[in-house]
Design a protein around this nucleic acid. Structure first.
Lengths: 196, 196
DNA sequence: GTCTATACGACGATAGAC
DNA sequence: GTCTATCGTCGTATAGAC
C-alpha cells in the first residue's frame, strides 16, 4: 500500500516514462535530450536521475514494461481462445487496437530501433511476445488449421500484412482510420496460410 | 570522361558513401561520428566536408541514390514483365536478392529510421518505389489477376510477408539462408490476394 | 582538393544544498 | 526525494596552410 510520498514518487517516475515515450517516438531517442525530458515532464534533473540510472535506463524501463504488457495480453488471448484461428485473429485485433488507441506504444514496439540505444537487447522480433505469436501459428499447424510449412514463413505471411499497414498508419499515409482495414487484412492474411 | 583527379575525387566521395552506409546500418546514424567516417574511409575531415555539406548531407546522398536505384530496377521489371503476377514476383525476387547480396543496402532501405536524421524526407513507404509497387498491384486488380479491394490492403498483404522475413534475416534470427524462403513466401503471399 | 588543428556548442551526468 | 548549478566530454563543423 503506497504512502503519500510513494504515490508522488511513482507519479514523478510515471511522468518521466510517459514523456520519454512521447518524445522517443516523435523525435527519436537521440534527438531527445535529457533537457527535453525534464522540461516537458516538469520533473527536475535530480529527480530523473534518482529514478533512473541514466538516459538508457529510461529507455530500458519503457522497453521491458512494454514487453511485459504484451506478454500478459497474449497469454490472456491464448487462454481465452480455443482455435489457432481465433487466437491469431485476436492478436491482429489487439495490434490494431493498440495502434489506434496508443500509437506511441505501437511506434515504440514496431518502429523504434531499440538496438541503437539498448545494445544489450535482442531484436524485438526474437522477444517473447513475437515467439508467442509463432507458437500460436505452430499450434495451428499441429491442429490442421494452418498449412504445414516453415513456421517463420507462415508467421511472417500471417502477420506481415497487418504490421505493414500499421506502419503505414504510423507514417500517416493511410486515407481512412486504421480500424476500417482490419477485416480485409485479416481475410487476406488468413487465406495466405490456412489449409486449402 | 573523367580526368585523373576527378577519378580520385569521385573515388574519395565514393569511399565516404560506402563507409557511411556500413556504419549507419551497423551502428546507427547517431552512433556514427564524423571521426568514425573519416577514420574508416581514410578520407580527411576537410575532404569529407568538401564533398558533403554536413553529416546529414551524406545520409541524404545515400538515401536519394538508393531511391533512384530502386526506381530504375522497378521500371526495368515493369517493362520486361507482362502480367502483374510476374511483375510482383520479380519485385519480391529482387528484394530477396538485394537483402542477400547487399544486406547494408536493404537495411538502409527497410530498417533505418530516415526521418530521425532526414526530417525533410517523406517516409520511405510513400516514396516512389513503394508507389510503383502499389501501381503494379492496382494494375493486377484492373487486369482481373488480383481480387479487387483497397490497394493499400492488397499491397501490404502481398509484400508484408516478404518484408517481415527479410527484416528477420537482417536481425539474424533466421536458421537457413534467406533465398531458401523465397518460393514459400511467394506462394503464401500470392494466395492472399489472387482472385479465387 | 586535401590536410591538420582547433573552436564552440550541446549533451549527459554529478555535486551538494534543502 | 527534490532541486539548481555546474562540470567534463565529445561531436560537428570551420579555419586556413599547402
Amino acid at each position: 500500500m503506497p504512502t503519500s510520498h510513494q504515490q508522488r514518487s511513482t507519479s514523478a517516475r510515471y511522468q518521466v516514462l510517459l514523456t520519454a515515450l512521447q518524445l522517443f517516438t516523435r523525435k527519436g531517442y537521440f534527438n531527445t535530450s535529457m533537457r527535453d525530458i525534464t522540461g516537458q515532464s516538469a520533473v527536475s534533473t535530480g529527480s530523473v536521475y534518482h529514478y533512473f540510472k541514466d538516459k538508457e535506463g529510461i529507455a530500458a524501463a519503457l522497453f521491458h514494461g512494454l514487453i511485459d504488457r504484451m506478454r500478459a495480453e497474449l497469454q490472456q488471448i491464448m487462454r481465452s481462445n480455443e482455435t489457432a484461428h481465433d487466437q491469431c485473429r485476436a492478436v491482429m485485433t489487439l495490434l490494431f487496437r493498440i495502434a489506434d488507441a496508443e500509437p506511441e506504444v505501437m511506434a515504440f514496439m514496431l518502429y523504434v530501433k531499440h538496438r541503437e540505444f539498448l545494445p544489450a537487447e535482442r531484436p524485438i522480433c526474437s522477444s517473447e511476445p513475437f515467439e508467442m505469436m509463432r507458437a500460436m501459428v505452430q499450434r495451428g499447424m499441429d491442429r490442421g488449421e494452418i498449412e504445414r510449412q516453415d513456421v517463420m514463413v507462415a508467421s511472417s505471411c500471417l502477420f506481415g500484412g497487418a504490421i505493414r499497414i500499421i506502419t503505414s498508419e504510423l507514417d500517416g499515409i493511410l486515407d481512412r482510420p486504421l480500424n476500417e482495414y482490419l477485416d480485409a487484412v485479416w481475410v487476406c492474411s488468413w487465406r495466405a496460410v490456412a489449409v486449402r
